[in-house]
Structures are given as C-alpha cells and as structure tokens.
Design a protein around this nucleic acid. Structure first.
Lengths: 224, 224
DNA sequence: AAGTATCGTCACAATTTGATTACAATAGTT
DNA sequence: AACTATTGTAATCAAATTGTGACGATACTT
C-alpha cells in the first residue's frame, strides 16, 4: 500500500512538478492550490504526510497546520516555503512542522526528506495491522477498514475475523474456532459458528459481492 | 524524563557549544570526539537521538550509522556535516539519517529539528502537554482545559484521562487500566472502571454531546 | 434427478455487558 | 473529631450481543 501525500502549493507549475516527481517514486498524491477542501479530504482519506506551502492565498500555511494540531490531527508535515529567515523556520517547527525546506529546493532532497519521515511514521507492514485484500484489521484500535470506510464489529465478530485473517489459506474447522475464538471452557454447538460467520459476512459484505469468507463444506471456513 | 542525546563531533569547540545549547533546553547530552566508545554507550544507555558528524578521524559518520542500522539499531539520527552536495545529502538519508543539517548551521535550527524529531519518536507525550480534540491536559499542573475553560479532576480521574489520551486510538481494556491507573498491588473489580469512566465522562462532557470516550463492548474504552 | 447431509437464514430467548444510582468506606482537611 | 471529597462496591435497569431451534436452500452423492 503506497503512502498518500497531500500537497498544498499555490503555484500550479510547482505543484505539478512535485506531484510528477513524487508519483514517479511510487507515492500517491493529492494536490491543492489552497487549504479550502483540505480538511474534508483529511477526514475522508488516510493521508500519511502533508507538504505545505506557507504563502497561500487567504490562509497562512503554518497557521493552518497549527489549527490541525489543536484538533489533534498529528499527520507529519513538511513546510516548503520561501520564508527562510530564522524566525520563519522557528515558527514553522513550533506550529507543528516535522521538517522545513526553503525555496528554491531540489526535488531530490524533497523526496529524500519525504522518505525519511515516512520511514519513521508509516506503520511498518503488519505491525498491529492484518490485511486481506481490501480489508484491514487494526488490533490496537480494534477497528476494521474496508476500502477506507470504517465498519463496526462486535467483539465476537472481530475476534472471529481476526482468527480467519491470521490464518489465511488455512481452513479453520468449527472445533478450532470454538476453542480459539469462543474459549474452551464453555460448550457450544457447531451451528453457533455458522450463525456467527453469517452475521460477520453480513457486516463485511452486505451485497454479497466480495465473497471474502469461503465455506468449506464438511470442514469449516477460510479466507483465501 | 529528559531526552538523552548522543553527539559525535570531532571539533571540540563545536561539540561543547552543542552540548551547552542543548543542555540549556533541558536535554541530557553525551558527547564524543569519535565513534570508538559510542557502541558501548548505546547498549548501556537509553539514547533517544544521535547527532552525527560525518568527517571523523578514522570512521565516516554515515557509514557508522549504516552499520548501526544493519544491526537493527533504529535510534533517530541527524547528520551534521560540511558535506553539502546533493549526493552527500542523498547518501546521508540513504544510510539511515532522519535529517541532515549542513555546516555552518544555526544552533536555533538544530534545536528545532531535534525537538521535531523527538516529538514524533519519543514515547512520552510532548512536554507534559497532551491534547485530544479540544481537550488539553497539562501534566505539570495536573489541570484540564476544555475549550479554554478549566475543569477540576480528582487524581483518579486525571490519571485515567491521561492513560486514555496518551493511548489515542488504542482500546484499553479494564485489566490494563486497573494495572496502570489504579496500580497493580491492590485487587479491584472490573466494574470499578465502569464507574470511574462514568464519573470522568460526567465531568468532561456533562451534556453528553461530545462523546470523547468510546465504549468498546466486551473490551474496554478508547479515545478516538 | 432424487435423496441426504450440510449450510444459511430468521426469529426469539437467554445471556452478557455497561450505565446509572445509591451507599459505604476511606482519606484528607479544618 | 467533624466534615468533606473521593473512591470502591453492590444493586438495578436497559440494551446489546449471542446461542439455539426451526426450516428452507444449497451442494454433494448415487
């Protein structure tokens, strides 16, 4: 999954150049000429890094970032600005910037700094995250994302999906599931699993178009 | 708990200047004129950040860092070097640097960059101030501000909110909370947490309009 | 194609869980 | 010591979750 970088830069040609170069490195980019629709996107998309110009029409970039920080939005930010005085740089960092690049800047250096930040902040693959196709399970927050939309699961449903997702390509029989998901002390019927699987399917694929969970007749269920 | 910064710089007067300025900002520092004893210290002390010169007697700083990285040591590194060519900077980042400052540099900027990196990588929340949405916890004065108005919390309530706020997006189960907020010596019931959470909710959101704390049925509570 | 075993689905009941309130116990203050 | 604030526990209520049985649908076998 490629990192998503949001760019705010009011000079259209510079913006294009940045998007082109970052895109060539395999990053996804969303560019804006001002901050108007940024907040909207931040709440909808999973942005990994923000590149922010400071001299923007209307808003001042670093003030905008400061307001994001006050809202508890801690996405990493690199300021890219012609403001190169010591006080300017100080202000940029104090308002929550992670790095500060002064114009004119080299594309190469920008890319290096982008990578350095993402290397630290982007959740390294499968650290607390389990994925299968377009499903992402986050263990810590106990949340399920399917195609960037959040789906609420009950505890049982979550544990069940986690068992399946961490045993991809392995058919889990009902006995195994009852023991590992439900817990071994109580005694349940095999049908209990059927119904639970069903309720899970209904939540993660209401249209029945994805077929995430495959039934293996006579044995159990699997994600494959 | 102050951050510990390890510095390798072969020019003695620059090293002293750096230690003096960083010390004045409240950082602990350990300075070296070469890399000889660095590894030893890294294994004994809990170093939060390394400031590394490149032109050192004997070793080349960035090569030394590269070897640390190969050993799985991922302490953040800021290179501080007179090598300012594009290729030099590229090499610095590729060998595992998090930032690159070219000599001559301003102490102010160094401190800002140090803080920016520690803000992200150090586990402890930044400077005793934790925020979430419009909530601000001040650890030093143990006070809580919500939308510019002061709210009084009891010790338990404060500690509980602090646990939640410093683990945003992570569901904390009752066992964890009892151990970390209440303390592990005594034995309490799980319900105790419910009641405490309730009292906290009542104080921080009497109208029940904000929904700061989310209940995760069957698991625990989270701020998200 | 018919028969059988297995599974999906639905409705309902049982259970679990959390919120809330009241009250008792404890600690800290005057 | 009396008072107050704080906190743990128990009881009650409401709600979400989950287990079960019934039955139709589906897949597999012959």
């Amino acid at each position: 999954m490629n990192a998503l970088i949001l760019i705010v830069e009011d000079e259209e040609d510079i913006l294009e150049l940045m998007e082109f170069n970052l895109g060539r490195e395999g990053f996804e980019t969303i560019g804006f000429l001002n901050t108007k629709r940024v907040h909207e996107v931040l709440s909808e998309e999973n942005v990994d890094l923000i590149l922010m110009d400071r001299n923007l029409p209307g808003t001042e970039g670093s003030e905008y970032i400061a307001s994001l920080r006050r809202q508890g939005i801690n996405i990493p930010v690199i300021f890219i600005s012609a403001k190169d005085k010591d006080e300017d740089i100080e202000q940029g960092f104090e308002r929550g910037g992670d790095d500060y690049l002064t114009k004119p800047f080299s594309m190469k250096e920008l890319i290096l700094r982008v990578k350095a930040i993402l290397r630290r902040t982007k959740k390294s693959p499968n650290e607390g995250n389990s994925t299968y196709r377009d499903i992402t399970l986050n263990l810590a927050s106990r949340t399920l994302m399917i195609e960037n939309s959040l789906i609420e699961l009950t505890k049982l449903e979550f544990d069940l999906l986690y068992a399946l997702i961490s045993n991809q390509n392995i058919v889990l029989d009902r006995e195994y599931l009852l023991e590992h998901v439900w817990g071994s002390d109580e005694v349940y019927q095999d049908r209990t699993v059927n119904v639970a699987i069903n309720r899970l399917k209904e939540k993660i694929d209401p249209d029945k178009s994805k077929e995430y969970i495959k039934t293996v007749r006579g044995v159990g269920y699997t994600l494959c």
